[in-house]
Write a protein that binds this DNA or RNA. Structure first.
Lengths: 186, 186
DNA sequence: AGCACTTATTCAACTTGTTGAGTATGAAGA
DNA sequence: TCTTCATACTCAACAAGTTGAATAAGTGCT
């Protein structure tokens, strides 16, 4: 019952197909929710049954048909009600890399080092993508102007959180690599 | 098959009961893995069946008996093998607060504001707890000395990541509150 | 005396999330 | 031409995670 809120939040930006959402989850909502495509399709079908979203089929000539989903009035109301609910469970994080780092001293430290390096590379990419998204959202305004005057600041605020997260991944990863290298050279 | 790795990582610190782990998950492993007590008990039982951990029953006079689990040689080997595996799936985050913030402009902004404020308070607490843990781990050494010379740096490195995460929660939350207040006063 | 809280765990039912495969079409590059 | 990639889904099976209740004994507070 929680994935649906993330989906409805994504649909506030306008109608989208399951496929759009599955792909785009990485760019827009990804920094605080993850889901596989199968999960999205299943949940969207259920939400349609319950009247939270409406689908319209778009026939395409040179591609498979697609179903575009949009929020219904009931969906909008449900989302509004959701924002008013008392703060539910706190952040859930599951990070395999940190599990590995935790047992680095009793494990294969070269492999863990490589995994950290990969994380650093991924964080760099993701940060760059988020930076482009940010530029697009700002559309020439300064951050200050935007935050003071824009119609909607929610998506920008969540983007900032995602950027901070990736920046930390980067910083921390570089520190960790440095520590491991120093210890290896010892 | 992933929770068990987190559990084994926690058992590297020494034997623990399911109850210890369930509680302590918040202090040690919590910053990168979460699980309910039921999940831990079930998984520990399975791991015992598979010989990854061994349990010994400790009879207690004024409390219920408890089963203390420790890593077996097979468990240690499995954990080592796990650290050598290619980097699996990336971080999964699920944060209801960010979902709410995302739809803040179409929702109950006062309630969302309150939820952010609560998050800020929680982050402050958690950061203080992590800071105490850090002091304990350092045991008088400077961070530099510790990282260069300690037997095990894994737990310290993961702690640093957790601290960075909570600091970001704090910073971001304060910024978000400020933005909302300015907009409300507009 | 009564109530809530902590320790320590178990059982059952349920909801979510993951994995793998399969279908169909067109476009782009070797 | 042949393979690979992108679009756009569906189905089935399974693994993981959540929720709620129950048990049992002691401790601390009013």
């Amino acid at each position: 019952m929680a994935l649906r809120n993330a989906l409805m939040a994504a649909l506030l930006d306008g109608e989208a197909s399951g496929y759009d959402l599955a792909k785009g989850f990485d760019a827009s909502v990804a920094n605080y929710w993850t889901a596989t495509p199968q999960q999205l399709y299943r949940e969207l079908d259920r939400m349609e049954d319950e009247g939270l979203v409406a689908a319209r089929v778009v026939e395409q000539e040179r591609r498979p048909n697609k179903r575009l989903f949009s929020l219904t009035a009931a969906g909008r109301a449900a989302l509004h009600a959701y924002t008013a609910e008392p703060p539910a469970r706190p952040t859930a994080i599951r990070d395999e890399l940190l599990v590995k780092v935790r047992c680095l001293d009793d494990g294969d430290s070269a492999a863990v080092r490589a995994a950290i390096a990969e994380r650093v590379a991924l964080a760099t990419d993701k940060l760059a993508r988020y930076e482009r998204l940010r530029t697009r959202l700002l559309a020439g305004r300064t951050e200050e102007d935007f935050l003071a005057g824009a119609d909607r600041v929610g998506p920008y605020l969540t983007l900032l959180r995602g950027m901070a997260f990736e920046r930390e991944n980067l910083h921390w990863g570089e520190l960790a690599l440095d520590v491991l290298d120093r210890r290896a050279a010892r």
